[in-house]
């Protein structure tokens, strides 16, 4: 308890004011209520000290979603010139325990930015991805790292491929690949498009009904301003309209419908694809497939 400790003697704790008729009041433990009262007192003076650092750690341990305490802590850490490497180590343990937390990753970003060195970050992120390879906060942080430290060509693409070997349906990894290939303002040369087409078709072969690579290649072609018909052959392989029994991918059908809808004499094939989707291969989206049909009919009229 802070009130029993001599080094806190000079601080007059500020109790919490919840108003006369509070809603959703929380039954704090005495420990939390006391720590918060001392924290408010220190924050009122904007005190940057070792004891302030200690109390932020204490409160974050009890409630890691307390954004005010995190921002106060960042200010103290910088003001006291604390060892930022130690701060990162301390953060690692917090991040592994609280996976869905905005504050931890924002704090990490502030610290690493100040440190101006991303050594070791990839290893720690790998640990986070072992727990959840689709953690949105971690991926956002990784994208920030790539931009901040210019890591575009430093093994990122290989890492994405490693993760997709683990789980080809990891759409976060596919999104990261798109970011690496297109996010730096690079021109999508024919060579890159060829490479991506090859990579995508290998992965579609593993699981034709996996939406991620289909979405990905559609995005690449759109970004490169190439027509969808570039992948018509792949689509007809997985969705042979002349042999509907052999259809393996609803996503291939979807793209075929899009390709054929732009060619007036192949309008019927587009309608056939959408009918197959609606009746058999993706019936929960019937209203949407029908909408696409009416769009084609409208354009023809």
């Amino acid at each position: 308890m802070y009130q029993e400790r001599p080094e806190w003697e000079d601080v007059i704790p500020l109790p919490q004011d919840d108003g006369a008729l509070p809603l959703a009041q929380i039954a704090y433990t005495d420990e939390y209520a006391e720590a918060m009262s001392y924290l408010r007192a220190l924050m009122a003076k904007d005190e940057h000290s070792e004891r302030a650092l200690e109390i932020t750690e204490h409160i974050i341990e009890m409630n890691p979603a307390h954004y005010t305490v995190w921002l106060y802590r960042a200010n103290i850490v910088f003001a006291l010139g604390k060892d930022l490497r130690k701060e990162v180590e301390w953060l690692n343990e917090k991040a592994l325990r609280h996976e869905k937390n905005y504050q931890i990753w924002h704090h990490r970003q502030l610290i690493i930015d100040k440190l101006d060195d991303s050594t070791g970050e990839a290893d720690f992120i790998a640990k986070m991805f072992q727990k959840d390879a689709k953690n949105y906060h971690v991926w956002s942080y990784r994208q920030w790292l790539v931009k901040r430290f210019g890591l575009w060509e430093k093994g990122e693409l290989e890492y994405v491929e490693y993760l997709l070997e683990q789980d080809v349906r990891n759409n976060s990894a596919w999104s990261h690949r798109f970011f690496l290939v297109c996010g730096n303002g690079q021109e999508l040369t024919e060579e890159i498009v060829q490479r991506e087409l090859g990579y995508v078709s290998d992965n579609i072969f593993l699981a034709p009904q996996n939406p991620s690579p289909w979405n990905y290649i559609r995005g690449i072609l759109q970004r490169a301003k190439l027509p969808m018909s570039r992948i018509e052959k792949t689509c007809t392989y997985y969705a042979p309209l002349d042999n509907p029994e052999k259809i393996k991918s609803s996503h291939a059908l979807d793209i075929l419908a899009e390709i054929y809808s732009t060619i007036p004499e192949q309008k019927d094939l587009a309608i056939q694809s959408l009918d197959l989707l609606s009746s058999t291969y993706d019936p929960i989206r019937t209203n949407y497939w029908n909408y696409r049909k009416t769009q084609i009919q409208k354009a023809a009229a």
């Binding site: 809603l23 959703a24 009041q25 929380i26 039954a27 704090y28 433990t29 939390y32 009890m62 409630n63 890691p64 979603a65 307390h66 954004y67 005010t68």
Partner: peptide, 26 residues
Amino acid sequence: SGLDEEQLPDYMVSLDASRPWIVYWC
């Protein structure tokens, strides 16, 4: 119960920085 209970249980301290949310949700 989120609004009228005298106090929410102490394990809900993780929502201590989100009390406006509890009020809005309920």
